[in-house]
Simulated scan of single mutants.
Amino acid sequence: MKREYGIARCGLACCLCSENKTCHGCNSGECPDKDWCENRKCLIKKFYEHCFNCGEDCRKGLLTKIKPYGFTLFAKRYGQEMLLDCLERNEKLGIVYHREGINGRLR
């Protein structure tokens, strides 16, 4: 787990992704999908860093996917650090959230 990559704006776990070797997470500004990401555009417009910081219960963009939506709900309730702690613990226990070719992105 690359904890420093954190959680993407939409709730994807960038910290667990091995898909793109040149990306250092959503919040690094290096995400290859940043120009089309509906969640990123919305958050920039509203001056929020993450969907879990927003008071709305929305299902647009990547929040239509179960994992980002679930991670967002968890972070809203318990905070990003607790989410990262749980993901790290679960990864050590062998739980796989991300597999090559299967991802939470829309494309």
Rank of each mutant, 00 (worst) to 15 (best):
55 G>F: 10
13 A>C: 07
3 R>E: 15
28 S>Q: 08
98 H>G: 05
37 C>H: 02
79 G>K: 05
102 I>D: 00
5 Y>K: 15
28 S>W: 08
86 C>V: 13
105 R>H: 03
101 G>D: 04
8 A>K: 02
32 P>D: 00
36 W>T: 15
87 L>G: 08
19 E>H: 07
85 D>W: 04
90 N>I: 00
72 T>P: 02
40 R>W: 11
52 F>Q: 12
89 R>F: 10
5 Y>Q: 15
73 L>K: 15
9 R>C: 06
13 A>T: 11
21 K>S: 11
56 E>T: 10
51 C>K: 12
80 Q>V: 15
74 F>N: 04
22 T>G: 02
85 D>I: 13
28 S>F: 11
33 D>P: 01
6 G>L: 09
68 P>M: 06
57 D>Y: 12
91 E>H: 09
26 C>Q: 07
72 T>C: 13
60 K>P: 00
64 T>Q: 14
42 C>F: 13
1 M>T: 15
90 N>Y: 09
90 N>E: 05
85 D>V: 13
85 D>A: 05
52 F>P: 12
33 D>R: 11
1 M>D: 12
50 H>V: 08
16 L>A: 04
77 R>P: 00
92 K>L: 11
33 D>T: 03
76 K>R: 15
20 N>Q: 01
96 V>I: 15
60 K>Y: 14
94 G>A: 04
86 C>E: 13
63 L>M: 08
18 S>N: 14
53 N>T: 06
74 F>I: 03
77 R>V: 10
16 L>Q: 09
96 V>M: 02
83 L>E: 05
100 E>V: 06
46 K>V: 06
23 C>M: 05
7 I>V: 14
51 C>I: 09
61 G>Y: 06
91 E>Q: 07
64 T>S: 15
37 C>N: 04
36 W>D: 13
37 C>T: 06
86 C>P: 00
42 C>M: 13
80 Q>R: 15
39 N>M: 04
44 I>L: 15
96 V>Y: 08
88 E>L: 02
9 R>Q: 03
27 N>W: 12
70 G>A: 14
60 K>M: 13
102 I>R: 02
81 E>F: 00
44 I>R: 12
49 E>D: 12
43 L>I: 02
23 C>Y: 04
4 E>M: 03
106 L>V: 14
73 L>A: 13
25 G>I: 05
90 N>T: 03
49 E>H: 09
58 C>T: 15
48 Y>G: 11
107 R>L: 04
44 I>D: 15
75 A>L: 04
92 K>P: 05
62 L>E: 12
74 F>W: 05
82 M>D: 01
26 C>G: 13
24 H>W: 09
52 F>G: 14
76 K>H: 08
